[in-house]
Each structure stands twice: as structure tokens, then as C-alpha cells.
Simulated assay, not measured.
Amino acid sequence: MNVVQGIAAALTPLGLVWTAIIFGVSVFLHELAHYALARVQGVKVNSFSVGMGPVLFRKHWKGTEWRVSLLPLGGYVEIDGMAPEEDAQGKLRQPTRGFAALPAWGKVAVLLAGPLTNLLLALALMTTTFAAQGVPALDRARIESVEAGSRAQTLGLRAGDVIVAIDGQDLPETRRVSGQDVAGYEGVRDALRQAGRHTFTVERAAAGGQVQQRQVAFDWQPTVNGKRQLLGIRYGPDVRRVGVGQAFATSVDTTVRAVPQLVGAFTGLFKKFFTLDISQDQNVSGPIGTAEVISRAAALSPWALVQVATLLNLSLAFFNLLPIPGLDGGRILLVLVGALRGRPLSFQQEQAINFGGFAFVMLLTLFVVVRDVSRFF
């Protein structure tokens, strides 16, 4: 009962609604892209389901049975020629029509359409965010809040102040620390790790739109009697207003920079899976963890929900492109192997590979759910 109560406390009704909406839209567009690329090439799509599980509603339109299913998370399309077909004796065999009859490039186009749509959706959401809120200015640290009664409040620092220099040195855009690029605004944290006298150069918006610059000098001790001291500010990068073009360019750059992080996150997940390590980390969340994040975002602001939706679509795009049989990336790999061989894999080979891949994905999903639930014990 404690576990159920813990999960219920982590999730809010509004958060669950937004989880269903964000997942539903992301998966619907993913599957719609598969559908569109198949139909453009003359391949029949037998069914298209919004949701999973028992079918609540169905309607035939343009040769496809459109379904609404009970579980609002997920969806699927049944493209003619992707599943095995029966011969005259009722035995399963390699399909010869529809998707199976397409050239290799046509098959890849159908399979690639879903992940590419999630990627484009993530870029669109990111571009909208940057165009509306500005792009991060990593060489400036904006104070987001000041704790009441803190040392920062005593020094006269306020929410909205922007730290542009520390000890007379301008903050860099990025700097190299232990072989990694670190944002310049994190220099605030570095300064507060060092004892001595520090000076922050702070810009503050004044009446009439003017910006005033002031110096804030103070003596600092990182620890007192073994206890870590806090200045009492929460900060992040400042923002710079840009047009749609620059917002899109920044979105592309951010996506490229995110690839190594996604690779590291999924590599870490696979290592934990193969070693049955259910310890928690912040890199990969299961359905409960994702719903919890969305619940918190829903309580903050609409832009927080947009950021979560952006990350979710990036993750969906990357995960589906992994070369694991059963996923889009695995199917693309089998198509390319067949093209290189000059003939497709045999029915038995493809079935065995796809079954193994599907089993692996199901076990991985179960593992992620177990990790999600285990933290409530």
C-alpha cells in the first residue's frame, strides 16, 4: 500500500492528462508519418490505431480501419506486407506484396519517417521556445531567485540581476574543464568554492528600460566549522532575444550537442540492464518517472511542458533509430543487409531476428518499469 501511495503522490491528475496528451500526440504523428510514406508509394495500410489495447471505436475510411483503443499511450499502424502471410496450406511465409515489394529505398523511407517526424517535432518545439523566450546566453548568469534572509539578500542581490563578470573577469561562453565543455555561467559556482574576497559585476534593469551596472564585493568562506555555506541564490544562463532563423539554428546546434548525452544515457541503461542494476539515475526514466516529470512541469508553466515534450520527442527519435530488431532502426538495418547481399534474408532468419529483438525490447521495458517502481519501496 505504501508503494501505491508513493506513486499516487508523485503523479497528479493534471500531470496524467498531460502525459496522455504529450505521448499520444508524439506517437500519433510518428505512426501517421509511417502511414503517409506507405500510402504515397501505393502500399495499403490495413489499420491505424490511436492508443493500445482493446478497440473502443473503429471506422473504415480510404481502405484503412481507423481505431481508437482503450490505453491512451501509444498507437500502431498495420502496413500491408510487413507481417508474414499464409500460403495455401495455412503456413506462414515471407510476404510478397505491399511493403515487401518496395525497393530498399522505399522501405527505408517508410521506416525512417516515424523517427524523423519526432525529430522535426522536437526541432519545431525548440525553435518556438527559443523564438519566444530567447536563446541561452552562457556568458551571463541570471539570478532567478534569492532566498529570504540569505547572505545574497544582505548583499542586495535581487531576482533578475545578471552577473556578467567575477573578480574583474568576464564570464566566457564556454570553458574546458577536465576535457569537457562547461558553460561560462557556472563560474559562479567555481568562485563560491574558493575562500577569499570576491567581486560580482551585476547588471540590473532600472526604470525607463535603462540598465545599471554595480559591483558587489564580499568576503567568502565555502565552509564554516565543516558546514557548507550557501550564498542563497538560484541562477541559470541569461537569455538573448533572437529571430526565428537564429532560434532554428540554435535548435539544430542544441540537438547535435544532445546526441552524445543520449548515447551515454542509453549506453548506461543497457549496462544496468545486463547487470540487473536497478539503481536510479537521472538519465533515463520509465513511464512512471516520465509522468512524474510531466506532473511537475504542468505545475510550473506551459513552457516547462513544451521543454519536456521536446526532450521526449528527441528520445523517441533516437531510441527508435537504435539498430535493435523490432525497432525502426533494426528494421532499417535488415533492409540494408538485404540490399547489400542482393537478396533479403530468409523468412526463418528474419522471424528469428525480429522475435529476439522484440523479446529484448519487452524485457528492457519491464526492467525500466521495475526501476521506476523500486524507488518507492
Rank of each mutant, 00 (worst) to 15 (best):
154 T>S: 15
165 A>V: 12
259 V>H: 06
68 V>D: 09
66 W>V: 12
141 A>D: 00
23 F>Q: 11
242 V>N: 03
163 I>Q: 01
242 V>Q: 02
364 L>F: 14
364 L>R: 09
326 G>K: 07
347 F>H: 03
315 S>I: 07
156 G>P: 07
368 V>M: 05
105 W>V: 09
207 A>K: 04
63 G>M: 01
186 E>F: 15
198 H>A: 06
99 F>S: 01
243 G>F: 12
205 A>C: 06
251 S>I: 04
91 K>A: 14
279 S>R: 12
26 S>V: 05
182 V>I: 15
85 E>V: 15
330 G>S: 09
88 A>T: 14
15 G>N: 04
235 Y>W: 10
241 R>S: 13
263 V>W: 04
325 P>D: 01
18 W>K: 06
169 Q>W: 08
246 Q>F: 13
227 K>E: 11
77 V>A: 09
248 F>R: 03
356 G>H: 08
107 K>P: 05
332 I>E: 02
274 F>D: 01
318 F>L: 05
232 G>F: 08
166 I>G: 06
215 Q>L: 15
100 A>F: 10
75 G>L: 09
176 R>F: 06
266 F>D: 01
31 E>S: 07
194 Q>V: 15
12 T>M: 03
54 P>G: 03
313 N>D: 06
153 Q>G: 13
62 K>D: 12
204 R>K: 05
352 A>F: 15
51 G>I: 11
